[in-house]
Amino acid sequence: MHCDPIPVSQDALGAKGMMATSPQPVGGYHRACTLPFMVSRIAAGFPSPADDYVEKQIDLNTHLIQHREATFILRVTGWSMRDAGIFDGDEIIVDRAITPVDGKIVVAAINGDLTVKRLRRIGNAVHLVAENPEFPAIILKEGEELCIWGVVTRVLHRV
């Protein structure tokens, strides 16, 4: 079974990768996952006693993604969030629909790059704090503009 978190089926896009002009809500671009409804094949008409206990297979998409349209996966490079469990090479799931409030780990656009920091509101100032003592925090003064790209919800880390 193959389920990309943000799949785009060839069917929905056409061979050239162009968008189909179908006006259906985007629900259509989920690649179908096959889900078993019955554990056993019924050969002679007697159902397996286990059939009553069958549930749908676990679907990582529904578990990891809350707002499908607003969710993006980014790859991180660097170690500034090591103590928050985000390591070099990890993939992070970022949900842009979530409001970035104090304490959230966020993706921020700083000097033209995307970076990850913990958002802290201290008094009137906004701090972007690294989770690694070797990296300094960024402190924004009043009037300075900050572009929060999205809120990090999960880390995908290969063990």
Binding site: D4, I6, F72, L74, R75, V76, W79, L114, T115, F135
Partner: peptide, 15 residues
Amino acid sequence: AYTTRWADLARAKLE
């Protein structure tokens, strides 16, 4: 293809 290919994911620099 930032949003559709694992090998192409957008990068966040943690520096």
